[in-house]
Design a protein around this nucleic acid. Structure first.
Length: 294
DNA sequence: ACCTACAGACTGTTTACATCA
DNA sequence: TCTGATGTAAACAGTCTGTAG
């Protein structure tokens, strides 16, 4: 089965990560007949130990193990894998290099699978010692086509993937990876934008809060001098009709709204000025000027 | 030569679905 | 027919690392 080869590579990596110099164990795992769970499914008997040993601990641990892996070609093929068509499959107009990819072997399409096996992991044992993974650089045309395709649909079904790969002269695996990365980076950018918006929102709310605190202080001060209290002008918090943008009469914002809009219903939601957290000012609960009528 | 941002590629995890006992 | 176990594939998150500027 195709997945068994993937399992080989993975198991090899895991053993290195565990840093357990146990050739016997390595041999045991590397033997495809002993691994009934090729994918990293929860049922994989080797996964829990890996998780227990590393993943649940810390990123540093992970980083260390990854660092430990540097210089080890995790894409290395198990011996005996057919290396035909190793060269010259990458895009003719790209900056070509040998491309690795294990996951491509999961491709259900046999043709694609064969192509990937032959091409995407084309690192010979001789090369392995000195060559780390090299990256292809997509040409402008390729990037443009991929971008266009991404605009249409940011995920690809296997058929589309194959067609696109064929059109671009790339491996389906490369198209798949490109889309994955594109989705991830799009999401990241969107997150950054959202973060900026939230930041601005926070600043606005802070400013609004400051303003309201100040207003409260002023009102408290006024309360101490009742002779001025009744003569005061309305506070800065005005009730405004959101649809027609008229400021309601302080004595009864709802009544005013009802007068302005005979049906009345449109102004049941009459709110104080403010654009809400997403605008220049925060929304605050409706209270009209009731507080001034004692 | 060194640094940095970008992007291609990888590993491990999660999730959905199919199959089978 | 229902249900839990298992396998598979796809997408995702996080990371590494080669390369261009």
């Amino acid at each position: 089965m195709m997945v068994q080869k993937e399992d080989l590579g993975l198991s090899l990596s895991l053993n290195f990560r565990h840093n357990i110099p146990n050739p016997q164990h390595l041999t045991l795992i590397s033997s495809s007949t002993h691994s009934s769970s090729p994918s990293p499914s929860p049922s994989n008997p080797f996964k829990p130990s890996w998780n227990d040993a590393f993943d649940r601990n810390s990123d540093t641990c992970r980083g260390e193990t990854r660092s430990f892996l540097r210089g080890i070609d995790v894409n290395r093929l198990p011996s005996g894998v057919d290396m035909e068509e190793e060269a010259g499959v990458s895009s003719p107009n790209s900056t070509v290099s040998s491309v690795s990819g294990k996951r491509s072997e999961r491709e259900p399409n046999g043709e694609e699978h064969d192509m990937n096996r032959a091409c995407s992991r084309g690192i010979s044992d001789e090369e392995d010692g000195e060559t780390s993974r090299k990256k292809l650089r997509l040409s402008k045309d390729q990037s443009a086509i991929l971008e266009e395709s991404f605009k249409e649909h940011n995920t690809l079904n296997p058929k589309q993937k194959l067609a696109l790969a064929k059109q671009l002269g790339l491996l389906p695996r490369q198209v798949e990876v490109w889309f994955q990365n594109r989705r991830a980076r799009t999401k990241l950018k969107q997150t950054e934008v959202d973060c900026e918006v939230l930041k601005r929102c926070c600043e606005n709310l802070t400013e609004e809060n400051r303003r309201l605190q100040k207003e409260v202080q002023e009102l408290r001060a006024l309360k101490l001098s009742p002779q001025f209290y009744m003569q005061m002008t309305p506070p800065t918090t005005l009730t405004m009709c959101p649809s027609c943008e008229r400021v309601a009469v302080p004595s009864s914002a709802v009544d005013a709204a009802a007068r302005h809009h005979p049906m009345g219903q449109a102004h049941a939601h009459s709110r104080p000025m403010g654009m809400g957290p997403w605008g220049s000012a925060a929304s605050i609960p409706h209270r009209g000027f009731d507080g001034f009528h004692h």
